[in-house]
Design a protein around this nucleic acid. Structure first.
Length: 578
RNA sequence: CGCGGGGUAGAGCAGUGGCAGCUCGUCAGGCUCAUAACCUGGAGGUCGUCGGUUCGAAUCCGACCCCCGCAACCA
């Protein structure tokens, strides 16, 4: 436990959950637990962490859902936001700032970014024809138009894709189109939009991807390169709608900035809001304008290209502001003082899909298990442990309740939990509740030090499943050590030998506690109590209590328990289920 | 030929040219401090298919088959 004199700055952006309901376990497996484990580790390591996210609170589906539930969109969004916060709290998911896209600050930053990109010529105006539902008087997103597939004749094809034959469609090609909102026949209407000129940024983008993607997950890199290979197309960045961030251009009333400009800018606006919240309005620049600050984006599946292509493109285009006296004066961000470029992503450790009965989870089709259900059944630690242990880091993974039970019983309980329990019980009953006076076994010491180092490496590479596997290895080592040394024999025949064994076992128990802090925080805290650990600095607890961490203290190392310390009566940290 | 991921023991997965591994399950044994736990040993695989390169291929090359994801504000 030493002051970290040279803390690494870590910015973590976590994809924004859509505020149309509760989050499900796919979200947990995808990013919300991984980011928290990663952030907790870095805080414990004494690094400077800024992790932000928020509720994505705009868009057509929210309008429709609100209508369905007969409440206002604002009410739906507020309720969803509260639900999400509850879930986070239950699962111990903590952010430096978790906000929402409904804030004035967000609107201001989005409009600022939009206008700079427009001034630099990366956003241009064009018009297109889009289906309009005359009955409900709304333009229709492609997915809200159904009709007959021109390829296979399926009468229920969606405007974007035919679910029957799998073809991606242009909405205008549908035969006999109808609106899913009213069943009315939609009409094609001319509408003007702004487009993001990705083509223009493509060379710069490609160079950046070639240079930076070496440490990305293979599938993320290949997927991204695939998009570039296909050629980037301009995309409309505005929508005909009233619910969202208004397009800040005269004559564009009734249109809003479309999500994949809007939501990703949240990473910046939430950082700015955080700086404001802690009373240091320029502090966000430490994380956004320091090239040594590493930017990680925890996202999942289909969001990948927004973070490896579109968001970097926006940042590149936006950073041209700093080359122009005029733009710099005209478009200052809140609290902005430094005329330096914004940092680009360092890594995008995107996960693949968690499947349930062979299909991915979906809010729309109600094919899901909510995060709340998981929490209510199995609690914080097991939920966190399981979805780290079996995160779909490199390929899709099937979720099953059996795996969850097996993992709990064989790994959390039988490996780690049982070792802790047998050690504490032995100490409590055979050594008068005191840590016996024993000598360090070098092999144990080495094993512990190696574990700290290797687990740290895995986490820093965002190989979280491996990091947990490594901790389980230490648990297996500990059980074997205990078994080989057979202190239950020694306690009668070789008392000092038994004392040595238990002294070292206690150290292993404490090592496991320290290593597991990012993964199973509740049990670690409880175990700290059993071991009578007092006054230990835990940056994550400080963040929960004070909302900010003032000191960078490196606590990622073994902290020995001294002989003679009295321990509490052992209690089970985790129990077998079913 | 749209883009991408995958196919290895009953299950879930590591393994990028050199004796096919890990966890769980299963079988046998040991131990008894511990949550029926822990420890040791065994059985179980023509590495999707076919062809090629090589002294040597799960791994490199070619063809094919199967599963999955991706243009929607679905993580």
């Amino acid at each position: 436990m030493t002051t970290n004199l040279n803390p690494q700055k870590i910015f973590i952006g976590v994809s924004w959950p859509y505020a149309s309901g509760k989050i499900h376990i796919g979200h947990l497996a995808g990013q919300y637990i991984a980011c928290d484990v990663f952030a907790r580790y870095h805080r414990l390591k004494g690094n400077s962490v800024l992790m932000v996210s928020g509720s994505d609170s705009h868009g057509t589906p929210i309008l429709f859902k609100a209508e369905e539930e007969k409440i206002t969109p604002e009410e739906l969004v507020a309720k969803s936001h509260r639900d999400i916060l509850d879930t986070y709290k239950n699962l111990g998911l903590i952010y430096e700032n978790y906000t929402s896209t409904t804030t004035k600050n967000h609107e201001e930053v989005v409009q600022n970014v939009f206008l700079v990109l427009k001034e630099r010529g990366y956003i241009y105006e064009d018009s297109s024809k889009q289906y309009f539902d005359p009955k409900v008087e709304r333009f229709l997103p492609d997915r809200y138009v159904r009709g007959t597939c021109p390829k296979c004749g399926n009468e229920n094809a969606r405007g974007d894709e035919c679910p029957e034959c799998g073809t991606f469609l242009d909405v205008e090609d549908l035969i006999n189109p109808r609106s899913t909102l009213s069943d009315a026949i939609p009409v094609l209407k001319e509408t003007k939009h702004f487009y993001l000129d990705l083509k223009k940024l493509e060379p710069e983008l490609e160079e950046w991807i070639d240079g930076s993607s070496g440490n990305w997950r293979k599938w993320v890199r290949e997927y991204t390169k695939g998009w570039i290979k296909e050629g980037l197309k301009s995309r409309a960045v505005t929508r005909d709608m009233e619910f969202g961030v208004p397009v800040p251009v005269e004559g564009w009333e009734g249109k809003v900035v479309y999500v994949w400009i809007e939501a990703v800018v949240g990473y910046l606006s939430a950082a700015i809001e955080w700086a404001e919240n802690i009373g240091k309005p320029s502090k966000w620049e430490d994380f956004w304008k320091d090239p040594s600050c590493k930017h990680y984006y925890f996202i999942a599946g289909g969001n990948t290209q927004f973070h490896t292509i579109i968001w970097p493109a926006e940042l590149m285009g936006y950073s041209e502001k700093y080359d122009s006296d005029e733009l710099w004066e005209k478009y200052k961000l809140p609290g902005e003082t430094r005329r330096e470029k914004l940092d680009l992503p360092y890594d995008v450790p995107s996960n693949r899909m968690l499947l349930f009965n062979g299909k991915k989870m979906s809010k729309g089709e109600n094919h899901m298990i909510t995060a709340d259900e998981m929490y209510e059944k199995y609690g914080t630690d097991l939920t966190r442990f399981f979805f780290t242990r079996f995160a779909p880091e490199n390929h899709d993974r099937e979720f099953s309740w059996e795996d969850l039970v097996t993992t709990n019983n064989n790994e959390l309980v039988a490996n780690i939990g049982n070792f802790i329990n047998r050690t504490l019980t032995f100490t409590y009953t055979k050594f008068d509740k005191k840590v016996p006076d024993g000598n360090w076994d070098e092999s144990v010491k080495t094993e512990i030090d190696n574990a700290f180092e290797e687990v740290a490496q895995y986490i820093e590479q965002v190989k979280l499943t491996k990091s947990l596997e490594r901790i389980l290895e230490l648990g297996a080592f500990a059980n074997k050590y205990f078994n080989d040394r057979a202190p239950w024999v020694g306690v009668k025949e070789d008392e000092q030998g038994a004392k040595d064994t238990l002294f070292n076992s206690i150290q292993l128990v404490n090592a496991l506690r320290l290593l597991l802090r990012p993964f199973t925080p509740l049990a670690c805290k409880e175990l700290g109590g059993l071991l009578n650990v007092k006054g230990e600095f835990n940056a994550n607890d400080v963040l929960i209590e004070n909302g900010v961490i003032e000191k960078n203290i490196d606590t990622w190392a073994h902290q020995p328990i001294e002989a003679g310390r009295v321990i509490q009566e052992p209690e089970l940290l985790w129990e077998k289920i079913e």
